[in-house]
Amino acid sequence: MLDAIAFYTLAALILAFAIAVITARNPVHSVVFLVINFLAVAIVYIVLGAEFLAMIQVLVYAGGIVVLYLFVVMLVNLKRGPEAHQDPRRQTGAGVGLAVAVLAELTAILAYTGRNPLPAVVPAASARGPGGNTEQLGWLLYTTYLIPFEVASMLLLVAMIGAIVLARKVD
């Protein structure tokens, strides 16, 4: 019961701040709303008993990723009005098509998981020690999901090389 109240309060907060992110006129305000959004998601993880994920959410998302977003805001010339950023090559039709596709996909997932609920991967919060589920998470990640873990390093490598290639001086 208490969990349900916590979840729906947090869900409402997350949605409200997500809407604030996309409606704020000032991009720096958007980024600040995004930090609050990420922190609320971290609290959802704590309510679910996933302390490790919550810490990562705070350290990586609210800490690291948001700094990246701020730098992107600083790289863009904000003195021009939003109208000046209108791109004549913008593909409105393709964007709407993609949005509809994503919506259909999400609806399909929702309909599917509504009929066949996923089994719980980790035991209930009461069955665990004070350290949360870090051990179970590690065990799954480094045995069952070994290949995705190694592929993740390739993904990080691609991100690193991509950033360097994009940011280096044209010579």
Binding site: L68, T134, L137, G138, Y142, F149
Partner: peptide, 24 residues
């Protein structure tokens, strides 16, 4: 600045992966 932040985030994520690994 962006490049430094990007490299920071990547090595940040790399270090994060070592925590559950170190526990077990």
């Amino acid at each position: 600045y962006y490049l430094v932040a990007m490299l920071f985030v990547i090595f940040d994520v790399e270090t994060i992966f070592m925590f559950p690994w170190a526990v077990i």
